[in-house]
């Protein structure tokens, strides 16, 4: 979560939502949240667990460029 938040502050293009999965079961089901943290970027690129900054950035750039598949 920390990386997402700092990226949001670094770029006007980035928004970071921290979602309490238990409190929004339908939302969690929609994104098939099985383990946390689960990160979903532009509803296309998703991964579970914490990533190093470089890999997190790669995921962000991939999503920004239309990569991944619709969640």
């Amino acid at each position: 979560m920390r990386l997402a938040q700092h990226m949001a502050v670094a770029s006007d293009q980035v928004r970071a939502d921290c979602i309490e999965a238990n409190e929004f079961p339908e939302w969690s089901q929609q994104y098939r949240v099985m383990a946390v943290p689960k990160v979903v970027i532009n509803d296309r690129v998703q991964f579970e667990g914490a990533l190093p900054e470089r890999d997190f950035l790669s995921a962000v750039l991939r999503a920004a460029n239309g990569g991944g598949a619709p969640a």
């Binding site: 997402a4 928004r15 979602i19 946390v36």
Partner: peptide, 10 residues
Amino acid sequence: SPVHIKVFTT
């Protein structure tokens, strides 16, 4: 272009 990051946590 906009990048919307959702992080599901508990």
